Lab assay of single mutants.
Amino acid sequence: MQNSHSGVNQLGGVFVNGRPLPDSTRQKIVELAHSGARPCDISRILQVSNGCVSKILGRYYETGSIRPRAIGGSKPRVATPEVVSKIAQYKRECPSIFAWEIRDRLLSEGVCTNDNIPSVSSINRVLRNLASEKQQMGADGMYDKLRMLNGQTGSWGTRPGWYPGTSVPGQPTQDGCQQQEGGGENTNSISSNGEDSDEAQMRLQLKRKLQRNRTSFTQEQIEALEKEFERTHYPDVFARERLAAKIDLPEARIQVWFSNRRAKWRREEKLRNQRRQASNTPSHIPISSSFSTSVYQPIPQPTTPVSSFTSGSMLGRTDTALTNTYSALPPMPSFTMANNLPMQPPVPSQTSSYSCMLPTSPSVNGRSYDTYTPPHMQTHMNSQPMGTSGTTSTGLISPGVSVPVQVPGSEPDMSQYWPRLQ
């Protein structure tokens, strides 16, 4: 039975679970980093996980050691009161100082060594604690504590007292930064006198190289990059290397530039699409467009005044059976039934097929058609009795279509119309 579990990581490298990497692998990681390889490249070359490479390099940059820390136990506290007071002093002298600059000053002034120097995250935590204590304490208590930490007896009751030896409130920041720059020169002199001055200088240079600022491109470089971006948004590694040799930039910087440029292009394309949609959409909808001609068919113009009344309900007709019959029939052209047409008796099958359309009241044959006459024609229609054979009435077949029909004066039988409509 094995005491430890061995495995293979996602890159194909072998590791022992819970145990640190061998010293030979750690040394190779540092050597590759000094030669300029990126952590992701080191991870692929040595088949070590990216997190492990970053952790080893980060500890090497901070402490200069590649040895693993002790497994188990607690780390001794490195942010001692003396170190905290120095950090507060540096922050007062130059409020814009960075944590890694404070760390360098602690090393250069001999406050800490490589073994007990606090990390950048520890210094940031100390600065946050100082800021929170400043908010919790009152103004007087804060000034007393700062005077105690600074070891001075001057008056701290006013704002300019934060910067000793100065009279203009805006000047101390520059003086403090100048003092810090002077301390940086002392850093070089002190570290050069040490035993491991060369190694420390190499480590600091490598650290500065990794902690780079934003790349500033010249106009020629920007023009070359934009020209390549117009050709393709995704250049391959050969195109990037050719462009890197042409404009004297690292291939990694060119790759990052193209990634950022593609993101910018997507944002601009989104804005262009929004403007295009806004320009195509009308600002207001016309009133006429809300009524579609496919839904509402136009009603033909009436030929006679009587045809303006298109349904039985508008003429005072309360018989719903006839109203439904007229509205359900398709529109037909106007025609006239003459008196000489043969009077065919209704076929029983045809009569039964339209039995649902006729009223059940037996008085329908005896009703006159003056009910369908509009009010303004009552006088004219009353002067001509319906009993004469020459009287013409208008029957409504569908809305908007008038059918003048000659009705025999002897017997106005409704059943004569249905064979004609089939």
Rank of each mutant, 00 (worst) to 15 (best):
V111P: 13
V16T: 12
A79P: 00
G73I: 03
D115V: 13
G51D: 01
I71C: 15
S6Y: 15
P20C: 01
G18E: 02
K55W: 02
A79I: 10
C94M: 12
R69H: 09
L107H: 15
V83S: 04
K145W: 11
R77E: 01
L149N: 09
K91S: 05
G138R: 12
S4A: 13
G18P: 03
L32H: 06
G51T: 15
I123M: 04
S74M: 04
F15Q: 04
K91N: 05
V78N: 01
T25Y: 06
S54L: 04
F98I: 07
E109R: 12
I87D: 00
L106S: 00
R26N: 02
P20T: 01
A139P: 07
G36Y: 01
A139N: 14
R105C: 09
I56M: 00
A131Q: 12
D140H: 10
P76F: 03
G18R: 02
K86P: 03
K86D: 07
M148G: 12
D115L: 13
N50F: 14
N150K: 13
S24Q: 12
Q136P: 11
G12C: 00
P76M: 03
P39I: 10
R77A: 00
S54V: 06
L146N: 10
I45C: 08
E133L: 09
G73E: 01
G13P: 00
G36E: 03
D144G: 09
R67K: 13
R44T: 05
G138E: 12
V83C: 08
S35Y: 11
Y143G: 11
V8C: 03
D104M: 10
R125L: 05
R19P: 02
R77T: 07
R128N: 00
D115N: 11
V53R: 00
R26A: 01
G138S: 12
E62P: 03
S54M: 03
N9V: 04
R69G: 06
L127W: 15
S121I: 01
G73A: 05
S54R: 08
L46F: 04
L21I: 05
Q27C: 14
P76A: 08
H5T: 11
S119Y: 02
I97K: 15
E62Y: 05
E93K: 09
M137L: 13
I45R: 14
R77S: 06
V84Y: 05
I66N: 03
V53T: 00
V111Q: 09
L32Y: 08
D140N: 10
R77H: 05
G72Y: 04
E133M: 11
C52I: 00
C112E: 00
I29R: 01
R19N: 03
H34E: 14
R147A: 12
S108E: 12
M137R: 14
R147H: 14
R125P: 05
Q136V: 10
R103D: 02
G72F: 00
R59P: 02
N3P: 13
S6A: 12
S35V: 11
S85T: 11
N114K: 13
N50V: 12
R38I: 04
D140A: 11
R105F: 10
G72W: 00
T25L: 06
K145P: 13
G13W: 00
E109H: 12
L11C: 05
R103V: 06
I87P: 01
M137E: 11
G18H: 00
Y143S: 13
Q135Y: 12
N9G: 01
R105S: 11
I56L: 08
T25S: 07
H34L: 14
D115G: 14
E62R: 15
G12Y: 03
D23C: 10
I87H: 11
K75Y: 03
S65Y: 05
I87E: 03
P22V: 06
M148H: 15
R26C: 01
P81G: 06
R105K: 11
V53E: 00
V14S: 14
V16C: 10
S54Y: 07
F15I: 04
R19H: 05
S24G: 10
S108C: 09
G64Q: 05
P95A: 13
N150G: 09
C40G: 06
I102H: 06
R26M: 02
I97H: 08
L11M: 07
V126Y: 05
A33P: 01
R69W: 06
G72S: 05
C52A: 14
Q10A: 13
H5E: 08
G73V: 05
Y61V: 14
R105M: 12
R59C: 00
G72H: 04
T63Y: 00
A139D: 14
Q10C: 07
I117C: 14
D115M: 12
I29Y: 01
G138P: 11
P76L: 05
Y90H: 14
K75F: 03
P95V: 15
G18N: 00
L106Q: 03
S65G: 05
E133G: 10
V48L: 05
I123K: 02
Q136W: 10
T80I: 06
S85D: 08
Q135E: 14
V48F: 01
R67Y: 07
P68Y: 03
S74Y: 03
D41C: 04
P39N: 15
H5M: 10
T80F: 06
M142T: 10
S132P: 09
Y61W: 08
A139H: 11
P39V: 15
G141T: 12
K91Q: 05
L32W: 03
S122N: 02
A131H: 09
R125F: 04
S54I: 04
R105E: 08
K91W: 02
S54A: 05
L57W: 01
Y90V: 14
L46A: 01
T25G: 04
S85L: 09
Q89L: 09
D23L: 14
R103L: 05
C112W: 04
K86F: 10
N124F: 01
E101F: 06
L127H: 15
C112S: 09
D140M: 11
L107W: 09
S4L: 11
K28I: 05
K145E: 11
Q89R: 13
V111W: 08
F15W: 06
D104T: 09
P95M: 10
C40W: 01
L21Q: 04
R59V: 08
A99C: 06
A88T: 08
R69K: 14
I56Q: 00
P22E: 05
I87C: 07
R125Q: 00
